[in-house]
């Protein structure tokens, strides 16, 4: 089974005091560490598991600059066979444009399955997977938590609201947006890292993939970023621990919690 996975390198924003940059349209990123998007990591693992089971190849793709090659090399070290980086140059990107670019490149490749993460941890849009499926004319399913291939179709598990698990069949080729927890992503071993150095990593410039200028225009423009204003209403409970505990219990009871 030939699989294509689309991945993104994102800044780690948890446990960091984010600041808005001078433009007011982005956060300050220079002091942030970057990692592979968590959902994508599960997608990479899933593709490598499928390759180990069924054979075939895994190709990993990202739209980004040279620094973003980190996540491609990481995927290669986990077991992907080749990587493609699409250099966007000065283009301003959004989910629509990224899916346009990816679709154009993926059209020229052989595949049975395309995987993305459900969403990216930076902007949480969750758009690229579904738009890419549409542009490639593929069946699509999101929040996938299980995959079993059977010939030209596959049985998939999809996580629904309220903890429901939906099992359905999907025709291949298809595009699946992978949910975290579908597997246990492996460590990147040093042996894998050594092998990754010898694998193919091609760089394609966005102007060379055959999209017209009109097709390279984003559809959403960020007007402003702001931190949520501090709200009133917090009550600081002071005193020794037993008084604090009593006060908390009282408040919980007042709010209708049965304790």
């Amino acid at each position: 089974m030939d699989i294509i996975i689309c991945v993104k390198r994102i800044p780690m924003t948890q446990e960091v005091d984010l600041e808005i940059d001078d433009s007011g349209k982005d956060i300050k990123k220079d002091a942030l560490a970057y990692v592979v998007n968590d959902w994508d990591n599960y997608a990479i693992e899933e593709s490598v598991i499928l390759k180990e089971k069924l054979g075939g190849t895994v190709t990993v793709i990202t739209v980004g600059d040279e620094d973003d090659e980190d996540v491609l090399r990481r995927a290669l070290a986990m077991g992907a066979d080749k990587a493609i980086r699409i250099e966007p140059g000065e283009l301003e990107l959004d989910g629509f444009l990224i899916s346009n670019i990816l679709a154009q490149v993926i059209k020229g490749l052989e595949y049975d399955l395309v995987l993305t993460g459900v969403q990216a941890d930076d902007d949480n849009f969750g758009m690229v997977g579904i738009m890419l499926a549409e542009k490639l004319g593929l069946a699509h399913s999101a929040v996938v938590t299980g995959f079993e291939a059977e010939g030209s179709e596959a049985t998939i598990n999809v996580e629904l609201e309220g903890g429901l698990d939906e099992v359905s069949k999907i025709k291949l080729p298809a595009l699946l947006s992978i949910q975290t927890g579908i597997n246990e992503p492996r460590y990147v071993s040093i042996m894998g890292i050594r092998k990754a150095g010898k694998k193919e990593l091609n760089v394609v410039k966005v102007e060379d993939i055959g999209l017209s200028d009109e097709e390279l225009v984003r559809q959403t423009i960020i007007e402003e970023y702001f931190l949520p204003p501090e709200t009133e209403g917090a009550e600081m409970i002071e005193g020794d621990p037993s008084n604090v505990a009593e006060a908390i219990l009282r408040i919980l009871k007042e709010k209708g919690v049965s304790v």
Binding site: D70, R73, R74, A77, Y187, V188, S189, I190, I193, R194, A196, G197
Partner: peptide
């Protein structure tokens, strides 16, 4: 490669 080994 050094950086990836560190991460691992």
């Amino acid at each position: 490669e050094h950086k990836m080994i560190y991460e691992t």
